[in-house]
Deep mutational scan, measured.
Amino acid sequence: MSRVPSPPPPAEMSSGPVAESWCYTQIKVVKFSYMWTINNFSFCREEMGEVIKSSTFSSGANDKLKWCLRVNPKGLDEESKDYLSLYLLLVSCPKSEVRAKFKFSILNAKGEETKAMESQRAYRFVQGKDWGFKKFIRRDFLLDEANGLLPDDKLTLFCEVSVVQDSVNISGQNTMNMVKVPECRLADELGGLWENSRFTDCCLCVAGQEFQAHKAILAARSPVFSAMFEHEMEESKKNRVEINDVEPEVFKEMMCFIYTGKAPNLDKMADDLLAAADKYALERLKVMCEDALCSNLSVENAAEILILADLHSADQLKTQAVDFINYHASDVLETSGWKSMVVSHPHLVAEAYRSLASAQCPFLGPPRKRLKQS
């Protein structure tokens, strides 16, 4: 649940008159999402009104509101027999009622949201009550392989729920002597030191190019640089560091992050930047690179990204790559990247197969709970 924001200063709310007192009302909304995959969808019983329910879910471990999704594969009634019906059901509720908006969509073979439908307002739910769409999607369109909505005969539904909580009022009075504290510009100011090479005390040599930097900042941000300058190493004695395995453009992006906490060109060089972040123990930059690479996972590059993640101990990226390969196994196994990995990294192939087997055979063990970014 997000923290209630402070109200904007009255002088910034309007260029008009300023009242002596004010009130700011925040209506709290808890948002969460749920993904439900139905394997072997074409084998569902086709009687009209037949119901399939998901397991229950909530916004978190401490949330007492429990929900589930309900599907009628062949419609709810005679009117909707040519459609799939989809509903959000409130299973248990400690209150007399709650209000919530919802959005349903289908994830296609690429994991993209399609055929989205959402409620136009927050509906009133009581325990045992459901709301949804009797005519969510035509069955003939859903079952047509050309539309790519049932890869490997799996129907994957994605649901986003927004639950309306209580409202909170914050009130106060205006004073004539309003003090406005300026925003912190530390990142910009440190970035200026790097860009202008002011007050530098060490030189970093990268592929024949020299960059002036500040030992204190490098040591504070990177345990690797800290070790170089702290001990009686040649880098500490000469205040000069030779860097041979990072390209200059990648190095500059890494230094921008060290000084400012930002990497504006990360998406263009996420793979190389991940390697640099791993070498210099820049954990936050490493996770930022993992996130960017996750966003660009595809059938063509899944094997290469899995190898990269394994090489640099990028655990979150590795998990996402394995899950992606499992979901698109029939396509990924035909790529040149996968065939190369079979020869060069057989242990990763074995890991992917083990994960695929456990996903398809849940009876082999208890269900695993899916539970950071600093």
Rank of each mutant, 00 (worst) to 15 (best):
L142G: 07
P223F: 08
F43Q: 14
G132R: 02
N326F: 13
E351V: 04
D144Q: 03
N177K: 04
S197F: 14
E234V: 14
V250F: 05
L89A: 15
G49N: 06
S92P: 01
C203D: 15
K268G: 10
R284G: 02
A352Y: 09
E290Q: 03
N108Q: 12
E189V: 05
S33R: 12
K66G: 09
L356C: 03
P366D: 01
K134G: 01
A207L: 07
P264S: 04
G132L: 00
G148W: 09
E113W: 04
G172T: 01
S197R: 14
R354V: 10
L293S: 15
Q373V: 15
E253H: 09
F41H: 07
A11I: 11
F125Y: 13
E334H: 07
H347E: 11
L308D: 08
E235P: 02
L306V: 08
F104P: 00
I170P: 01
I305H: 12
K101G: 11
K53I: 01
S55N: 10
R284F: 08
N196C: 15
P94N: 10
S15Q: 09
S330E: 10
N265P: 05
K135E: 07
N265H: 04
K64S: 10
T200P: 06
N72P: 07
S42G: 03
S344D: 08
L150Q: 10
N40W: 09
Q173G: 02
A220D: 15
C256L: 10
T156I: 10
A116I: 15
N40V: 03
L204R: 00
I243W: 09
L317K: 00
C203Q: 13
Y34Q: 10
N147T: 07
H312L: 04
K279H: 08
A207R: 14
A61L: 10
A100N: 14
G191M: 02
A359T: 03
F199C: 15
V163F: 13
L348P: 00
K66D: 06
Q127D: 13
A329Y: 08
R185E: 06
Y280E: 00
P9F: 03
T335D: 08
Q320M: 03
E232S: 15
S54K: 00
G16A: 09
S92V: 09
F141L: 07
R139S: 05
K279D: 08
C203R: 10
R368E: 13
D267A: 08
K81N: 08
C184W: 02
H345R: 01
V179F: 07
F211H: 14
C202E: 13
S92G: 01
G337K: 09
S14W: 01
G365E: 14
L371H: 13
H345A: 08
A359M: 10
Y24P: 00
S358C: 06
C202D: 11
